[in-house]
Design a protein around this nucleic acid. Sequence first.
DNA 1: GCTGAAAAACCTCTACC
DNA 2: GGTAGAGGTTTTTCAGC
Lengths: 163, 163
Amino acid sequence: MEEIDRAIVAALTVDGRLSYTDLAEKVGLSVSAVHQRVRRLEQRGVINGYAARVSFEALDLPLTAFVAIRPFDPSQPDDAPERLAHLPEIDSCYSVAGEDFYLLLVRVAGPADLERVLQEIRTAANVTTRTTVVLSTPYEGRPPKIDLDPRTRVRPRTNGEAG
Amino acid sequence: MEEIDRAIVAALTVDGRLSYTDLAEKVGLSVSAVHQRVRRLEQRGVINGYAARVSFEALDLPLTAFVAIRPFDPSQPDDAPERLAHLPEIDSCYSVAGEDFYLLLVRVAGPADLERVLQEIRTAANVTTRTTVVLSTPYEGRPPKIDLDPRTRVRPRTNGEAG
DNA sequence: GCTGAAAAACCTCTACC
DNA sequence: GGTAGAGGTTTTTCAGC
């Protein structure tokens, strides 16, 4: 992706409600041009949507936990993500390398709720769970590092490639 | 928090760019009243900000990893989060129960970049690392479950409390 | 805290380069 | 791809309840 588009995306990850006027000023284009670029970024799926960043404590979801899962029967088809998607307590689902198959990020009201969700996860996906409780969250969901300079930009490099 | 405020927050976690006009229609209040409530929610920190949801692949950050850390010397003051905050590759930092002290969510361009970041983490916070690579992300950052009905709402309950 | 209205700012589209 | 301008909508503020 190109420089100005990256600057637009970077600005919108910091403040998703920036007006097109402010965006235009930031990247040095006209309002219409910026608007056009944002619409293209949305269409191409570079921008998937916008969300408010909220305090989960204030929403009565003060307990966060990571739940690592692996199937009871590894020979069965592995469709855990779809089987678990209906559980609203699951914030994220990552397929991971290592001993576990998936790592889930879960948010609940308290221990009793966590117990219920773990049972629902086990029965819905036929898996065992290993849970790590989050005690506090120093920071979360920070804006990603977006390199704006095309010359210093790090391109992913496989291990075997020469420098 | 009260019912209408919860409805407002719920709507903004799904679409952070909803206009006050649309919000007002959704929750059945006037535009001014909704605007006032949103400003209060922002002031009280219930809403911390707004962000675009982006494709990290498109931003040349296709490699995600969880990095569990624990100090070399457990007797030293534990200020890892502050010591690591300057690293833009770290998306989130969770203090966790269990064998590790913190769990970091890291996003980088590729393996070479991950190696560099791991070294920076180790030297900056004087910790050992154990890394779990994310292979794919079925879903991430879904809107939280916000119970709107004050009668069914689950209040956090300690284990010893009677039902 | 809510309503309603008015002014300012913004969004969106069209015409043109 | 870009700019510029016009018209409709939204944001924001304020008086009144």
